[in-house]
Simulated assay, not measured.
Amino acid sequence: MPHADPAAPSESATVAAARRGRVTIVTGADDGYAPLAAELIASVRAHRALDGIDLSLISTGMSPAVLERMRPTVENVADGSWNIDAAGRRAGDRHWLMARVNKLYTRDYFPGYDTYIWIDADAWVCDPTAIDWLLAGVARSGLAVGYDDMPTSPIGVDIRSHLGGWFLGRTYCMKHARRAGLSATETRRLARVRPFNNGVFALAGDSPHWPVIQANMSRLVRKGRIFGSNQMAIVMAVHLDGLPVSIMPHACNYLDVPRVCAETGAFVEAEIPHHRVGVLHLASRDAMRADPAVEMDLLDTEGRTVRRSLRFRPDYLAQG
C-alpha cells in the first residue's frame, strides 16, 4: 500500500542529502515543446537551492538547430528512441509519444546518478521545496509520485450509462487495464485504485522499481494505448507488484488553477491555507502551452482578480 505523505524535511537536511549523491532533473521535448523545456530549465536555474542538481534533456525529435540552442543550458543531452519496439510500431509518426516511454528509462539514458527526477516539459519549478520532498520520498521508498486527480476529487469514474437507477461506470485504471488485456483478477484489483500522474516523479538509481515498471509498460502497450500506459505501469508496480511508494503532495505536481499570494506574488494552492505551489503543470492547457502571451484571470489570496499566464516568468517567483 502507498505510504503516507512524507513529512516536510528541513532545507538544510535535504540539501545536504542531495550533495551526498548525484541528482538529475530530466525532461524531454521535440521542437514544439522546446520553448516549454527551456522555461523549465530556466526555472530550475533560478533557484539557488537547486545548485548542484544536474539537468538532462532527451530529444524526442528536435531539429539540429533547436537542439544546439538547448545543449548549453543542460549538463546532459541524449537522443530519444523507442525503448519498447511495440510502442514504436504502434505510435507510427506520433513521435510526441516517445517521451511517455523515455521517462521510464531515464537511468539508461543518463547512467550514474543516485536520483532521477522526471518533470514534463510543460511544467516548471515555482518553489524548490517540491524537489526536497521528492528527494525525501525517494530516500524513503525508492519511488516518489503524486496522484493524477485533484485532492478533493473521486478516483475518476467515467459514467457510461444509467440503467434502472444504477450507474455503470469505469474508473481510469479499470479502463486502461481492460484495454491492455489484463486479467480479470488484475482488473478487479485496479478498479478502485487512484491513478498516479508521472508528469513529475522520482526514482532512486538503485531502485528495484525500474525493471518492473519497464516490464509493465512493455506488457501494456501490446494492446493498450501508449498514452496512459506510462502511468499505469507505475500503478501496477505499486498495486500489483507490491513495490513501495511515497505519495507526494499535490504541490509537487500542481494541475489545478492556482491563486496568487497577495504578499509575495508567488503561485499558491487554491485551497486554504494556500501553500506555495512547488511544480506548476500546464497539462491540457493547449492554448497557453502554444503561446506564452496567453493569460487568464486568477484570484489572489485577498480575492482580487489578477491577470497572468501560468507559464514561467522570472517575476512570478516569490520575492522574499
Rank of each mutant, 00 (worst) to 15 (best):
Arg170Asp: 09
Arg140Pro: 00
Ala136His: 06
Thr171His: 01
Ile117Asp: 01
Ser207Trp: 13
Asp108Glu: 15
Gly181Ser: 05
Ile213Phe: 07
Gly156Thr: 06
Ala130Val: 08
Arg219Thr: 12
Asp127Cys: 11
Met217Val: 08
Ile119Phe: 07
Ala215Phe: 01
Ile131Arg: 03
Arg189Phe: 04
Ser207Asn: 10
Asn197Lys: 13
Pro111Ser: 03
Ile117Cys: 02
Pro154Thr: 08
Trp124Phe: 01
Gly142Ser: 10
Gly146His: 06
Ala184Lys: 10
Val221Asn: 07
Trp124Tyr: 01
Gln214Ala: 07
Tyr113Asp: 07
Ile117Tyr: 02
Leu134Tyr: 03
Asp148Arg: 11
Tyr109Val: 06
Ser207Ile: 10
Gly137Pro: 06
Gly146Trp: 05
Pro151Asp: 09
Asp149Phe: 10
Gly224Asn: 11
Gly181Asp: 08
Pro208Asp: 12
Arg222Pro: 00
Gly137Lys: 04
Ile117Glu: 02
Val221Cys: 09
Asn197His: 15
Cys173Arg: 00
Arg179Asp: 11
Pro154Ile: 05
Leu135His: 01
Val145Ser: 04
Ile155His: 08
Ala204Val: 12
Asp122Asn: 13
Trp118Pro: 00
Ser141Gly: 05
Glu186Gln: 15
Trp210Ala: 03
Val125Gln: 07
Gly205Leu: 13
Arg219Leu: 12
Asp132Cys: 01
Leu163Val: 14
Ser141His: 13
Met150Leu: 15
Arg140Ser: 10
Gly112Trp: 10
Ala139Phe: 03
Ala191Phe: 13
Asp114Phe: 07
Phe196Leu: 13
Phe110Ala: 04
Gly156Phe: 08
Tyr116Lys: 04
Gly224Ser: 14
Asp148Tyr: 08
Pro195Met: 15
Tyr105Thr: 00
Leu143Phe: 09
Trp133Gln: 02
Gly165Leu: 10
Asp206Cys: 10
Tyr172Lys: 01
Val212Glu: 11
Thr129Phe: 07
Lys223His: 14
Ile119Glu: 02
Pro154Ala: 08
Arg192Leu: 15
Tyr105Phe: 15
Cys173Tyr: 00
Val145Arg: 03
Tyr113Gln: 09
Gly164Phe: 11
Ile213Met: 15
Gly181Arg: 08
Lys103Val: 02
